[in-house]
Every structure is written in structure tokens, then in C-alpha cells.
Computed example of a mutant assay.
Amino acid sequence: MHDNALELVHLLRAVTVEFGLRQAEFAAANGMHPTDVRALICLLDAARAAEPATAGLLGTRLGLNSAGTTAVIDRLERLGHVERLRDPHDRRRVLLSVTPEAIHLGQTFFGPAIETLTEALAGLTREEREAVRGFLTTAQVAFGG
């Protein structure tokens, strides 16, 4: 492997470690477990992808059994970060939704970093952004995502 390529892999690792530390800080500051933050991210990702966010989907994405998934949802609901809503197309199914308050909380904490990153990406050409996307997609797949 080329030294430069390995340097980028190490940089990606450093970024993921820092992001994990910020997630843990956010969780601790807001009375949450780190898994709760991962759950919120999963639910927000599902909303962006227009996927129905169910307990089953959340459990699968978090690698939790049914009891563990219910515990996470109960905690997040108790904290006011998640709502359980009846699916308007199938009244038997319950959908999960991140509350506007939780979104605001996350934007307040993570917003400055996200803004810095989006500004950096805005300065790249389309081809450069595609190269970054390709690398990050490969990294996600390499780690099982």
C-alpha cells in the first residue's frame, strides 16, 4: 500500500475516533447512552432516505434484540427525543420520529462542525466530491456498512 494511501486511511480512523468522542460528549451532556445517539442518527438517516422508521429497522441497524431496541426507544421517548406514531397507511404499524427539539439539540451541538465540512466540500469540484464520496462509500462497505 502506498504511504499516501495509508496516511488517508489513518486520517479516516482519526476522524471516526474524534466523531465518536463528540458523540459520547453529546450523549453525556444530554443524559443519553451512546447507543441512544446512534439510534437518533439511524432514525434521521431513515427519514432522509424516506424509509419507514420502525423498531425493527432500528434494531437491525443497531444490532440489538427486541428488548434492547424497546429500551432505547423508551429512553429516547422519555427524554422527548423520539415519538411513536401510527403509520397512516397501516394502523397496526408504529413509526418512530425524531422530535424537532432533538433535531435542534443535535444541530446546536454538531452544527458548527457540519458547517465547516459543508463549506470545505463546497470548495471542491464535482469530480473531487465524487472521489471523496467513492472513498467514503468504500470505507463504509469495508467496515460492514
Rank of each mutant, 00 (worst) to 15 (best):
P100N: 10
D3L: 12
R93I: 15
R38W: 03
T70E: 11
G111H: 07
R75L: 09
E77Y: 02
H89A: 13
G20K: 03
H2G: 06
L11Y: 03
A50I: 00
H2K: 11
G20V: 06
F26R: 03
V82E: 09
G59I: 13
V72T: 10
T99G: 11
H89E: 15
L64W: 02
T108Q: 10
T125M: 07
A142F: 09
A142N: 08
E128L: 08
R93C: 12
V37H: 05
V15N: 03
N4L: 11
A50L: 06
A120G: 13
R126N: 06
A29H: 09
V132T: 04
T70K: 11
A28H: 07
L79K: 15
V17E: 14
D45K: 13
A27Q: 00
E83C: 04
E115F: 06
Q23R: 10
G68L: 07
G134R: 12
G145N: 04
N30H: 11
G63P: 00
D74G: 02
V15I: 10
A47C: 02
G20P: 00
L21Y: 12
A49E: 14
E130S: 10
L79N: 08
T70H: 12
L6P: 00
G134S: 09
N65Q: 13
A55G: 14
G144E: 10
P34N: 01
H10F: 14
I73E: 03
T69N: 09
L6A: 10
L96K: 14
G106I: 00
C42N: 12
G80I: 09
L44S: 14
V72H: 02
G134N: 07
R91M: 07
D74C: 04
R38N: 10
L105P: 05
T60G: 06
N65P: 07
L85E: 14
V82N: 06
F26M: 09
R13T: 14
I114K: 08
L85Y: 02
G134E: 08
T99E: 14
T35C: 01
R78T: 15
A14R: 15
G145E: 00
D87N: 15
D45G: 10
L57W: 04
R61W: 01
L6Y: 06
A122F: 00
H10T: 04
A67I: 02
L44H: 12
N4R: 11
L76P: 01
R75A: 15
L12R: 09
T108E: 13
I73Q: 02
L136R: 14
Q23Y: 05
M1C: 06
A131C: 06
T69I: 04
T137W: 03
N4K: 09
N4Q: 11
L79P: 01
V98W: 05
N30P: 02
G145A: 06
A27N: 01
E115V: 12
A139K: 03
L79M: 12
